[in-house]
């Protein structure tokens, strides 16, 4: 049954001639071929900069200056007594808490409606509500910049038509209002994303669970409370974490609308790092703030990993 040619080609000469074939070294070579590029990219562009940021945070230096002056923890001390640093951190926290309430909250409600509340049309609604997620934050920022503009903006026109008076300094020009406007723009952009995330979780709940619950007398809001929410607990936690991380990483939206103004009222860590480094040339100080942001992000990332592992 065996063709000799096939047999030779399969059993091979290597084994027969007894020449030891180094499977281990072939394995090592293919491992480095496969793994090397990823390690190189991540090492050079993530690990090294992260280490350099920590290193640089102990020095004073400018964009082009070659003199690095060692200041120890001086940059951190400077941050601790810098009111703008604290405003930036506070604003990040406002955005985090506000986004969790608005984006995850509204996202959950919308997802629940789309999952079981509508007889038809949920795909269309999902597509519309999710759409801002694929648009660049800069484009979104500019659209809203124009909508909120005191002269040509649509919002003022609507407010005036109703007979109310819009804020004199403009929606983004008033230090007391600006950060809340940022929150609304972020909500406009990301609620759809949260909705889709949570919707994916909802669709994983077996139909039988609802059927059993309805036999037990739990329908509508009761079913939502006793069946739906507990079932998507983990997804909700992940959604909160993603929103939290996003709240600390926010940059594009603020850079393209207020650049942190007016009077630092919308400053966040991201924009403040940029300003200190590239507008004011305080690279070392910027590095120190970066390290704070880095620590927050890594801690949150670790938390997310733990939770998604458990899920």
């Amino acid at each position: 049954m065996m063709t000799d040619a096939a047999k030779t080609s399969l059993t091979g000469d290597r084994g027969r001639s007894g020449a030891p074939r180094s499977a281990k070294s072939a394995n090592a070579i293919s491992t480095s071929v496969l793994l090397g590029p990823a390690l190189l990219l991540c090492g050079v562009f993530i690990v090294v900069p992260a280490i350099l940021a920590i290193f640089g945070s102990f020095f004073d230096f400018g964009i082009t200056s070659q003199n690095w002056e060692f200041v120890g923890l001086g940059n951190y001390g400077r941050a601790a007594s810098d009111p703008v640093f604290w405003i930036a951190l506070r604003n990040n926290l406002i955005i985090v808490v506000g986004s969790i309430i608005l984006q995850v909250g509204v996202g959950t409600i919308l997802a629940a409606i789309l999952d079981r509340g509508l007889p038809s049309g949920s795909t269309i609604f999902r597509t519309i509500i999710f759409a801002p997620m694929v648009v660049s934050s800069v484009a979104i920022a500019i659209i809203w910049l124009v909508i909120l503009d005191p002269n040509v903006g649509a919002l003022n026109a609507v407010i005036k038509q109703i007979g109310l008076t819009p804020p004199a300094l403009g929606w983004l020009g008033d230090p007391n209002i600006a950060i809340w406007m940022i929150l609304i723009i972020a909500m406009w952009q990301f609620t759809g994303f949260m909705m889709v995330l949570i919707l994916a979780g909802l669709q994983g709940i077996p139909k039988e669970l609802y059927e059993a619950a309805s036999l037990d007398g739990a329908r509508g809001l009761k079913a939502f409370w006793y069946i739906t929410l507990p079932s998507i607990r983990n997804i909700l936690i992940v959604a909160v974490l993603i929103t939290t991380i996003g709240g600390f990483k926010v940059f594009d939206l603020i850079y393209a609308t207020t650049q942190g103004g007016p009077a630092n009222a919308t400053q966040v860590l991201g924009t403040y790092i940029y300003q200190q480094a590239f507008n004011l040339g305080n690279m070392g100080y910027a590095d120190a703030i970066s390290v704070v942001l880095l620590l927050i992000a890594v801690a949150l990332g670790w938390l997310q990993l733990q939770i998604s592992r458990r899920a």
Partner: peptide, 24 residues
């Protein structure tokens, strides 16, 4: 361990390494 390192890399935001990255 390598995998864990890569996962950790996911947590590092560009904004936090902007200065050294730009310098490099």
């Amino acid at each position: 361990l390598v995998y864990l390192m890569i996962v950790a890399g996911f947590a590092v935001p560009v904004q936090a390494v902007l200065v050294p990255l730009f310098q490099m």
